[in-house]
C-alpha cells in the first residue's frame, strides 16, 4: 500500500471530502496577483485561482517559486503589487487597518516555524488566539484571562492532545508539540478558513506526518476550508482535494489530487 493509500485509510476513506459535495461559495479568490521584491523580477506573476468552502487545496512548487509570498499575500502580511485578494467574501486589498484585522481574525494561519511566544506557557499561547475576537489585557496572558477563555483554550489544547502540557513553557516542548500548540492557537481564533505555510517543514518525517494528520483531521472535523503549502508531495496528494503547482512564479498546475501522483508533481521541480 503506498503512502497516499495509507493516509486515506487513516483519514477514513477517500483522500478528503469530495469537493463536489462542498458548497461552491468561494472562500478565497486570487485574481491577477503580482508581487516582486525591490524592483527585481516578479516572484509571483498574474496568479489567479479560487478555493471553495470546505475544500482542501495544497500548494506545491520548488524553493523560491513564491509559495510563502503567496500564502502571506492572502492575508496581506505581505502587500501584493497588483491584483485582488478576496477572502471570506471581503476584498482585502483596499481594506482599512481595522477592517483587515476583522478579516484576519477569521483566518487561522500556521507558519513553518510555530512562531509561539517562547517564554510563555502553552496555555498562554493558546489564549492569545482569543485576540481574534476579544480585545484588551485579558487575552494577553492566561493568568489574566476569563474562566470561559481559559476553558476554551484548554479545550483547544485537548483537541491537539496537549492538555497535560498546558502550564509547560513552549520553549521546553518538542518541535511537533510546539506546532500542535500553534494549531490550538489557530483553533482558538474560531476561524472559518485555515492557511498553512509548510506547516511540517521543520519537523522530522514521523512528527511531520503525525502533525499533518492531526491538523487536517481537525480542519475537516470543523468543516473549515484549508489552503496549505508543502514540499511533501505525499502530503500534498494525501491531504488535499486539489493541488496547485507553482513554477517560475505562475500557476503551472491546478488539478484534483486524485488525478496526481508524486512523479507527475516532481515535474514542477525540474
Amino acid at each position: 500500500m503506498n503512502l497516499t493509500a495509507q493516509l486515506d485509510v487513516k483519514l477514513g476513506g477517500g483522500a478528503m471530502a469530495s469537493p463536489s459535495n462542498a458548497s461552491r461559495i468561494q472562500d478565497l479568490s486570487i485574481s491577477s496577483l503580482t508581487k516582486s521584491y525591490d524592483g527585481q523580477a516578479p516572484v509571483l506573476r498574474d496568479i489567479s485561482f479560487e478555493i471553495h468552502r470546505g475544500e482542501a487545496v495544497a500548494l506545491v512548487g520548488a524553493n523560491g517559486t513564491g509559495k510563502s509570498t503567496l500564502m502571506r499575500c492572502c492575508l496581506r502580511l505581505i502587500e501584493p503589487d497588483a491584483g485582488g485578494v478576496k477572502i471570506l467574501g471581503a476584498d482585502i486589498t483596499g481594506l482599512s487597518r481595522k477592517a483587515l484585522r476583522d478579516v484576519r481574525a477569521q483566518a487561522g494561519f500556521i507558519f513553518q516555524r510555530h512562531n509561539l511566544v517562547p517564554r510563555f506557557s502553552a496555555l498562554s499561547n493558546v489564549v492569545h488566539g482569543a485576540q481574534a475576537w476579544s480585545r484588551g489585557p485579558r487575552t494577553w496572558h492566561q493568568a489574566l484571562a476569563s474562566k470561559a477563555v481559559r476553558e476554551e483554550a484548554m479545550y483547544c489544547l485537548d483537541l491537539v492532545g496537549l492538555a497535560d502540557f498546558a502550564k509547560r513553557r513552549v520553549d521546553q516542548l518538542s518541535g511537533g508539540q510546539s506546532q500542535r500548540v500553534a494549531i490550538a492557537r489557530a483553533l482558538m481564533q474560531r476561524p472559518r478558513i485555515m492557511l498553512a505555510d509548510e506547516p511540517v517543514a521543520s519537523l522530522d518525517p514521523k512528527a511531520g506526518e503525525e502533525v499533518m494528520e492531526l491538523f487536517v483531521r481537525l480542519i475537516k472535523s470543523q468543516g473549515l476550508t484549508l489552503f496549505y503549502s508543502s514540499h511533501h508531495l505525499e502530503h500534498a496528494i494525501g491531504y488535499s482535494d486539489r493541488i496547485l503547482g507553482l513554477r517560475g512564479g505562475v500557476v503551472a498546475l491546478d488539478g484534483e489530487s486524485n488525478s496526481q501522483n508524486v512523479n507527475s508533481l516532481r515535474g514542477l521541480y525540474d
Binding site: 476583522d102 494561519f109 512562531n115 485576540q131 481574534a132 489557530a186 481564533q189
Partner: peptide, 10 residues
C-alpha cells in the same frame, strides 16, 4: 510571534 499575532487579527 509578532507576525503570528498580526495574522490572527491582534
Amino acid at each position: 510571534p509578532q507576525e503570528a499575532l498580526t495574522a490572527l487579527g491582534a
